[in-house]
């Protein structure tokens, strides 16, 4: 997760748990608005997203709203490439994010753990 690395470059400490826990403020500017936009775009909640876009254009800005959706749509594709090819974490990421993966709950997305949960019946 590059949120931490980005925070280190900026001298800020963003809370990575906010990625999986909606009750936690990530600390980035207009984090709640970005989360709402992202969730609606990825879940396909188009009517709600239309309202969110209007609201976000007034708070975050029209250009920033579009750009947030540009990033969200890209990652809706690239996460599927990763999941479909079973690529391992890069070595440095694997060794430096162990605690973060446990803290945020994303360790449960590990391929072996998914196999244990979902493979019965194949």
């Amino acid at each position: 997760m590059l949120l931490r690395a980005s925070g280190e470059r900026e001298g800020r400490d963003y809370d990575e748990r906010s990625v999986t826990d909606p009750t936690i403020d990530p600390g980035v500017a207009d984090g709640a608005g970005l989360r709402a936009l992202t969730d609606a775009a990825i879940r396909g909640e188009w009517l709600e997203l239309a309202d969110l876009r209007s609201r976000s254009a007034r708070t975050l800005g029209a250009q920033q709203t579009v750009d947030a959706l540009v990033v969200a749509s890209a990652f809706n594709g690239i996460t599927r490439v990763a999941d479909a090819t079973g690529i391992p974490l890069d070595e440095n990421t694997l060794t430096t994010t162990t605690a973060m993966r446990e803290r945020t709950g994303i360790q449960r997305f590990d391929y072996l753990e998914k196999s244990a949960r979902y493979d019965s019946g194949i």
Binding site: Y14, V28, A29, D39, D67
Partner: peptide, 13 residues
Amino acid sequence: SQAEFVAARVSAL
């Protein structure tokens, strides 16, 4: 940072 938060949120979803 905003982009990384959006990216990470999509990954989680």
